[in-house]
Every structure is written in structure tokens, then in C-alpha cells.
Design a protein around this nucleic acid. Sequence first.
DNA 1: ACCTGAACACCGTTCAAGT
DNA 2: ACCTGAACACCGTTCAAGT
Lengths: 216, 216
Amino acid sequence: MTPADQPRRRGRPAAPLLSQEKITRAAVELIKVRGYAALTMAALARQLGVAPSALYNHVNSKRQLLLWIQDHVNREIDCSDFGARPWDEALESWAHSYRDAYARYSPLVPVIAVTPIAGSPHTVAMYEQVAAGLRAGGWPDDQIVDVVVAVESFILGSAMDAAAPDDIFDVPSAQAPVLAEVVGARVGRDAARAAFELGLATVLAGLRDRFNALGG
Amino acid sequence: MTPADQPRRRGRPAAPLLSQEKITRAAVELIKVRGYAALTMAALARQLGVAPSALYNHVNSKRQLLLWIQDHVNREIDCSDFGARPWDEALESWAHSYRDAYARYSPLVPVIAVTPIAGSPHTVAMYEQVAAGLRAGGWPDDQIVDVVVAVESFILGSAMDAAAPDDIFDVPSAQAPVLAEVVGARVGRDAARAAFELGLATVLAGLRDRFNALGG
DNA sequence: ACCTGAACACCGTTCAAGT
DNA sequence: ACCTGAACACCGTTCAAGT
């Protein structure tokens, strides 16, 4: 039923083919299926069944598209433990979720690391919850941002490391005997994850030290 | 004096205009003066006074050029404290030097994070010294790579953060009141450096905890 | 061996023209 | 308001031709 008080011009209906939602979903799909390098404006338009120039009626630039994707990815990150559990446990589960999300989208890391968050609602909501959780946990206001940035730096560095090939440190033992030996001494399958777990445990232990020293 | 036993063909001398050394120095200079985005093969050739295609007689691809630059930058990193001072102090000065070097070349970070080191002699030498220093300090072989990777992840994440604008977390307090408040509570000038220093102290404290728990 | 100049297949983006 | 098709200024890279 077409309401009489919504007059229509002659010709085809006004419903646009594209939207931020559709474009973002198509872009994420494209990255998942064919990899980040395949995300070109032309390929994206093709996936959406429009001409490349049509995209520019909805998005200002490829960079803005990357920010839409960032906000979409950040939506997946679980920060629900902040406010519900002790700050260190919340930080731990958040770090895991955050690292795993960007291990799948590692080419986005350099973009998000330098982009103001203001235009990304889900991203802002995430940081708000993290900041509120740390404050409620007893952290002083003037250290909270530094703590978050420090932990995030480790997370994003680890997400990039997760994209590295397994043989990144392989080297002839004649050239670097000690390095070759300790690389060989690593056990287990997912080396990047092992390093992340060791690092995260280390960071959390250091933060607990710092937190306990606050009162004195 | 042209030695008689080094016969020369007629025409101009065989001395080439380009070399890995010259190309790398010109590329680093270009990045320093005009920024990373200005590093194109055409601009580089122009700086060297040759045609763009001439570069490909010496370098296989732009990616290989980036690896040359990486090795050049890594040469600046000071790891001389490993073997000369306690492992934690050596790690600290190395981290500072490493972070400062890549804060100036942050667009290289995503490249080096996923590139095998074998083809980069100075890079291999750096890791060899770090690994040997940690081993001499008493770390067990099977944890050394994880420790190095974890610290490096934090360093590279911090180097990217150093390239972020100062207002990256600025947000309307109506949208995120706690975040706005703790961002305002930060004091001092170089926010990225403050976060790095807090994070590094945290990581080192955590590593000392872990190290001291090893014997038991 | 090493350089030039022309060419190629892309890339993101713009814009007049249509509906 | 939103789409198409042609065009633009770039990009990294290749290659025949010269010396």
C-alpha cells in the first residue's frame, strides 16, 4: 500500500541501490573471501552490481570506507567484562577478543592506529566502556588513557605479528647460531599466539604490580 | 692511471650510475624530506637523475626496496647493551632505540612485521645479539623467541601510535563522558611517549616477575 | 651491463549526462 | 537523489632498443 500522502514522482522508485550498511558488508565480505589486496573500489562496485563511480554518492573516499570497516570490526570486540568482573580479568578477555578480531584484518591496523575515533560510534562506545571499567576498578583518571594505549599498542603489534609467516625468523645457523638455536627450541604450533599469551600475561602482571603500588 | 691489464671497451666507462647503497640512501632521504607517501619509484628515479625503469636493473620491486630501507633503519637501532649489562636494562635501552627509530618510519612497520629477516644482514645481526644477551642473562631457550616477539609487538604498536594525531581520542563528553574526562586528565606534552614509557615499565616489571619465578 | 623511452595494466577519483 | 560511462592523473612494472 502506497500512502497517498507520500507523493511519488513518475518513473522508477527512489529506493537507492547502495547504503553505508550495504557497502560495508560487501567490503568485509570481499576481504574475507579474496583478501585485503582484492578490496579495490572497482571490485567492490562489481560485487554490488554498480559502476565504480556510484560508490562516491555514498562514501567520500576509500579511506572513509576503511573507517566504516574499522567500526564494523570493533563491533565484534567483546568488552562486556568491564564493569562485570575485576579490571584485570576484563582487560584480559578484551585483549583476546581485540587481538583475534584484528588478526583477521591486519592490514587495517596501520589505519586504525592513526585515525581519530570520533566518527566511529561503536569504537567510541568500546573505549567508553573500557575507561569506565578501569575507573570503577580503582585506576586514577590520569593513568587510564596511558594504560589503554599501552595495552592496545601491544594488541595491535600482536595482531600484525599474527599475519607473519611461520618462517619469519628462519636463518642459517652459520650466520646467527644462537638465534637459529632458540628459534628451533620453540615448541607448539601457533607461534604468534604463544608469544601473544606470554606477552599478555606479562603486561597484566606488570599492571597488577603498578596498581598495587598506587596506594602507598 | 688505467691499468693495461684491465682492458676497456670503446665508449663511456662501465661505472654504473646506481647501486643498492645509492638507491637506499636516496629513498631514506626522500622519506625524511617529503614523507613516506612521496616515495614512488618515479620520484626516487627523479631524485637519482635516471629514468624510472633504470631502477629495475638493481632492485626487483618496490617491496624489495622497502626491505633495503628496513635493514638500513635497523642498523641505527642500538643493541650494544646486550651482553654488557643485565638483560632487563639491555631490553629497556634496545626498546627505546627501536621504538624511536620506527616512530620516524612508521609506514614501514606493517612491512617489517611480516617479512622474513633472512635477507637482511643487519636485522639478523640485531636479533642474534638480542637472543644471545637473553640467553646469557639466564632465560631458557624455549622462551627467548616469545619474549622477543612479545616485546617487539609492543614496540611496533607503540611506533605506530607515535604517528597518531594528538586528538585521536577527542570525543564529545555527551557521547562518552568517562572517556572525555580521562582524556582530559592526561598531563604532559608527548602523550604517545608517556604511554610507551608506562607500557615499557610494565612489560619489564612483568618479565622480571616471570624470570624470578623460573628457578622455583 | 646498464640506461632510455614508450607502453601496459592497474588504481582512486571526478564529472557531465541521464532518469 | 542517484546512477552510468568516459575521462584524468597517477601508480608499479615490462621490454625493445640503444651504448
